[in-house]
Deep mutational scan, measured.
Amino acid sequence: MTVLPKDIPGDSLKVTVGTANGKPGDTVTVPVTFADVAKMKNVGTCNFYLGYDASLLEVVSVDAGPIVKNAAVNFSSSASNGTISFLFLDNTITDELITADGVFANIKFKLKSVTAKTTTPVTFKDGGAFGDGTMSKIASVTKTNGSVTIDP
């Protein structure tokens, strides 16, 4: 049996954390987006972790974005102690894959008090994996961190 590389060099799934701005007490939304989904033969499963400074940001909610089908079954998240974990699994293993680019999740943060303008990162942590529509590992994932700026 011969195994051929399935990824064209330079191609990767792009996962990007967005940015937001606000004043202390505001609730802002930071999107997590996927790009080049079709090039990577869709997404059938993924789990990953984001870190944030809990002294500056309070997670209000984490909701599935419009590219997630049947989110009540296929999407899960949790947030505590400065870490947000995400889990997606197409429970049907074929019919509810992520097949389009767009917003995977929206994180709502309540901004805490600061004395001066502060930009705090929302960054990928170690761990996690992504699988394509056949549940094979997506070897190349380009992750881009985001941030939230609090301006009193």
Rank of each mutant, 00 (worst) to 15 (best):
Lys41Cys: 07
Asn74Pro: 01
Asp63Pro: 09
Ile138Arg: 01
Leu97Ser: 04
Thr118Val: 04
Asn74Gln: 00
Thr83His: 14
Val103Ile: 06
Ser80Leu: 14
Val148Glu: 04
Leu89Ile: 03
Ala139Gln: 05
Ser55Val: 14
Lys23Thr: 12
Val148His: 00
Thr142Gly: 03
Gly25Thr: 11
Leu97Ala: 15
Ile8Gly: 15
Ile67Trp: 04
Ala79Val: 15
Ala105Glu: 07
Leu111Thr: 05
Asn81Ala: 15
Gly51Pro: 14
Lys6Met: 14
Lys39Val: 09
Phe34Thr: 08
Val32Cys: 09
Pro121Glu: 05
Asn81Ile: 15
Ser140Pro: 10
Phe75Cys: 05
Lys117Ile: 05
Asn47Gly: 03
Lys143Val: 02
Pro24Ala: 10
Asp90Ser: 00
Pro152Ser: 10
Ala38Glu: 10
Ile107His: 00
Val28Ala: 13
Met40Tyr: 09
Gly25Phe: 13
Ile93Ala: 01
Val73Arg: 03
Val28Cys: 08
Pro9Asp: 14
Lys69Trp: 12
Ile67Glu: 11
Ile8Ala: 08
Phe86Asn: 05
Gly133Gln: 05
Thr134Lys: 11
Ser85His: 02
Met40Gly: 09
Asp126Glu: 14
Pro121Cys: 04
Thr29Cys: 09
Lys6Pro: 11
Ser78Trp: 15
Val60Asp: 12
Ala72Lys: 13
Met1Arg: 14
Gly133Arg: 09
Ile98Gln: 02
Gly10Asn: 11
Leu89Asn: 00
Pro66His: 10
Ser147Asp: 06
Ala100Val: 05
Ile8Thr: 12
Thr19Gly: 14
Pro9Trp: 10
Pro24His: 13
Ile84His: 00
Ala100Thr: 08
Thr92Pro: 06
Gly82Tyr: 15
Asn91Gln: 05
Phe130Asp: 00
Val3Thr: 09
Lys41Thr: 12
Thr118Phe: 02
Val62Ile: 13
Asn70Ala: 08
Leu4Ile: 08
Phe109Ser: 03
Lys69Tyr: 10
Ala100Tyr: 06
Asn21Gln: 12
Gly82Gln: 15
Phe124Trp: 14
Asp7Lys: 11
Gly131Glu: 00
Thr83Val: 15
Ala54Lys: 08
Thr27Met: 13
Asp90Met: 03
Thr83Cys: 07
Asp26Leu: 13
Lys39Ile: 09
Ala71Thr: 06
Thr27Gly: 08
Val114Gln: 09
Gly102Pro: 02
Asn145Trp: 03
Glu58Thr: 09
Thr94Leu: 08
Val59Thr: 08
Thr99Pro: 05
Thr83Lys: 15
Leu4Gly: 10
Asn145Tyr: 07
Leu87Ile: 06
Val141Met: 10
Asn21Asp: 11
Ile138Tyr: 01
Asn106Val: 06
Leu50Thr: 11
Lys41Gln: 09
Ser85Cys: 01
Val114Ser: 07
Thr118Trp: 05
Pro152His: 14
Ser12Pro: 11
Thr94Asn: 01
Leu56Gln: 10
Val15Met: 07
Ser12Trp: 07
Asp36Ala: 13
Lys137Tyr: 02
Ala38Trp: 08
Asp63Gln: 10
Val37Phe: 09
Gly25Tyr: 12
Phe104Leu: 03
Ser12Thr: 13
Val28Phe: 09
Lys125Asn: 02
Asn74Ala: 03
Val37Ala: 13
Ser85Asn: 02
Asp36Tyr: 09
Ala129Leu: 01
Asp63Phe: 07
Lys110Tyr: 02
Phe130Leu: 05
Val122Ala: 05
Ser80Arg: 15
Thr99Asp: 04
Thr2Ile: 11
Thr92Ile: 00
Ile138Gly: 03
Ala71Pro: 13
Pro24Phe: 10
Leu89Met: 02
Asn81Leu: 15
Phe104Gln: 04
Ser12Tyr: 14
Val28His: 09
Gly127Trp: 03
Ile138Trp: 04
Ala38Thr: 13
Val30Arg: 07
Gly131Trp: 03
Ile67Ala: 14
Ile138Cys: 09
Thr45Ile: 01
Asp53Val: 12
Tyr52Glu: 03
Asn106Ser: 04
Ala116Asp: 06
Ala54Ser: 11
Gly131Ser: 03
Pro9Gln: 08
Gly25Cys: 14
Asp36Ser: 11
Gly82Cys: 15
Ile67Asp: 12
Asp36Cys: 05
Val30Thr: 10
Val60Gly: 08
Thr29Leu: 12
